[in-house]
Simulated assay, not measured.
Amino acid sequence: MTSTARTDFVRPDEAAMHTADVALGRMTKYLHSHHGKRNIRLVVDGDPKNTLEVPLAAIELLARVLAHMAAGQAVSVVPAHAELTTQQAADMLNVSRPYLIKLLDDGVIPHRKVGKHRRVRAEDLLGYKRQGDQKRRAIADELGELDREMGLY
């Protein structure tokens, strides 16, 4: 059984943005020079006796989190199987709750009902978001091509 997800966001201040940017640069260099590894060993507080072994996938995810933080964006980690309330889902899409409910009722985004309440799987919501992003990129590419054909660019 899945439970409703927590979607607490971490909003970086200027100092956190700078720290994230520096860490991202170092982490990116490390990942490029050590690709193919399954796990990464991290030394905590410079103490070789205090190491952590972390899956590479977790480090790659951390790099994405750092990239968003470095850009000043709020970040939250939500498991793919987690279920979101309609308000959480609307917040993640940056749309109103009534608009999201229309998408759900129209069958655009899968959901289930728990009593009178709708629940949306994070995985389904992110799939919808990815499709929209792909459509917007394709339209932008097409408009760019038309600009070039017309000599406007």
Score class of each variant (00 low, 15 high):
25 G>Q: 03
138 A>I: 05
12 P>G: 06
127 G>I: 00
136 R>K: 14
18 H>Q: 13
53 E>N: 11
2 T>F: 08
11 R>T: 11
48 P>I: 06
74 A>C: 04
148 R>Y: 02
12 P>K: 02
13 D>A: 01
119 R>H: 01
123 E>T: 10
113 K>P: 00
61 L>W: 05
79 P>F: 08
82 A>I: 00
129 K>L: 11
50 N>L: 14
130 R>E: 13
5 A>M: 04
18 H>V: 10
107 G>L: 01
130 R>H: 12
67 A>M: 03
96 S>G: 15
58 A>E: 13
110 P>S: 00
134 Q>N: 13
28 T>M: 06
18 H>D: 13
48 P>D: 10
145 E>D: 15
95 V>M: 09
49 K>D: 15
56 L>T: 14
125 L>Y: 04
86 T>V: 07
110 P>Y: 03
15 A>C: 09
60 E>M: 08
15 A>G: 08
50 N>C: 12
103 L>I: 01
122 A>T: 05
128 Y>H: 15
5 A>T: 05
88 Q>Y: 06
50 N>E: 11
150 M>N: 08
19 T>K: 12
93 L>D: 01
2 T>C: 01
25 G>R: 07
39 N>D: 12
128 Y>P: 01
75 V>T: 14
123 E>N: 10
26 R>L: 11
105 D>Y: 07
34 H>V: 00
55 P>L: 06
143 L>F: 05
54 V>K: 09
144 G>K: 09
119 R>M: 00
97 R>L: 00
106 D>P: 03
104 L>F: 06
101 I>R: 10
47 D>F: 02
63 A>K: 06
76 S>R: 03
80 A>F: 11
88 Q>C: 01
2 T>E: 14
59 I>F: 08
139 I>M: 11
96 S>R: 10
101 I>L: 13
43 V>G: 07
62 L>R: 09
76 S>A: 15
70 A>Y: 01
57 A>H: 11
48 P>S: 08
86 T>Q: 09
81 H>A: 10
30 Y>F: 15
15 A>W: 07
94 N>G: 11
2 T>P: 02
122 A>W: 03
55 P>M: 02
4 T>L: 10
111 H>I: 00
17 M>W: 03
135 K>L: 12
29 K>S: 14
151 G>F: 02
53 E>G: 04
